[in-house]
Design a protein around this nucleic acid. Structure first.
Lengths: 218, 218
DNA sequence: ACCTGAACACCGTTCAAGT
DNA sequence: ACCTGAACACCGTTCAAGT
């Protein structure tokens, strides 16, 4: 490492950008040693910019939320806008499991998350709900979306053929059970796991339409 | 270690029982070294009974589900029975985060989970839904319950006073935002985070009543 | 058959030292 | 001011060796 290859000073933004890149795709963990190597810096240099790894990962998670709300721009119906934003959120969490795990442990209250929360609350208000129901509806849709993303992520990461094979295997396992002890499971095995994305949207619409009905917009 | 203190041969059940005890309470991780110490055995001895740590934790997670269905015994109304089982499930996941993390990564298809699935499907069928909606309703309530548990767990672990303080702080943070940029957030801050358990039950009943309505039992 | 010892290839984090 | 080196206290896992 000669002087002319010595890098410019680190910045928090650069660290987050590189960590964010590393967290994409299959790699579902970022180590500080790998991160240091990609930054061309000693592994412990990031401690000058973040107090610990968790704070860094919160920043990475928040970067994952940047611009999710934009998918609702120009969508007039609040239910459709909510479906668009929350499906987009789920998609981002699926493709970035490390971020999903951070966000699944409670709110980070960082800028993109706050922007997203504002948008969701605004859209839920547009359903004509009383404030208390807006708040509870917000918690409901976030819990459903995060739950769906963390449960579906491992299978989602397998890609289309792997997904189909996995779901086939699970259905076969259930079908092979004793029908006397597990009648519902054996009967319903063929219709379980028919597309995680569709199942999510079904649940989300059920929730949103129930909320809309409470708001007098049903 | 004299011969007379040398322990009896390990069994998979004993390993799971001790790991399950260790995973309770505040400790949200179990290391094989600690586990070995509590078993009075070399850390790597568990590899004779489980192929890797993940398989062990799946067994621990399944132990966490034992008997959850029992809370529905004697409850006639299927909606009330579903609320009872899923609330009990959420409670167990809250008190055992290591198990929650395993179950949040997809189905284990072990005995207690299968028993729980059978019960949930049976109860959803009792709502009079077509099979496809039973399956999608099942995925919906599981995603909501697991999402609620993983999101609420860290704050839940603080105990009642810590919970209240945390929620107060979050509300105060939102209230302090610029009301022009974040109108809904500032307006609704006072009614956010009003008891995670109540919020969960609200969302769950919304979902179940929407399902019951589809089944002609609304 | 069942378990141990020693090692391998990792982690996050602290802190004195360098420039 | 910013980063490095070295160390600390951990991880899960493998595999040859012991009894």
């Amino acid at each position: 490492m000669s002087d002319r290859t010595r890098r410019a000073p680190l910045s928090a933004d650069e660290i987050v950008a590189v960590a964010w890149e590393m967290s994409g795709g299959d790699a579902d963990a970022v180590s500080l040693r790998d991160l240091g190597a990609r930054l061309g810096v000693h592994p412990t240099a990031v401690y000058r910019h973040f107090p610990d790894k968790h704070e860094l990962m919160c920043a990475v998670a928040d970067r994952t939320l940047a611009g999710v709300c934009d998918v609702a721009d120009g969508v007039d119906d609040p239910v459709e806008a909510l479906v668009a934003v929350l499906s987009a959120l789920r998609g981002r969490l699926l493709s970035r499991p490390a971020a999903a795990r951070v966000l699944a442990q409670g709110p980070t209250r960082r800028v993109n998350e706050v922007t997203l929360t504002e948008r969701l609350l605004g859209l839920l208000r547009a359903l004509g709900l009383p404030d208390a129901d807006v708040a509870r509806g917000y918690h409901a849709v976030v819990e459903l979306t995060v739950g769906s993303a963390v449960i579906d992520q491992p299978v989602d990461a397998l890609g289309a053929p792997g997904r189909a094979a996995t779901y086939d295997r699970w259905r076969a396992d259930y079908l092979a059970l004793d029908a006397d002890r597990y009648p519902a499971l054996v009967a319903l095995a063929p219709v379980l796991y028919r597309g995680a994305g569709e199942d999510f949207e079904f649940a989300l619409r059920l929730l949103l339409e129930a909320l809309a009905r409470r708001g007098g917009r049903g």
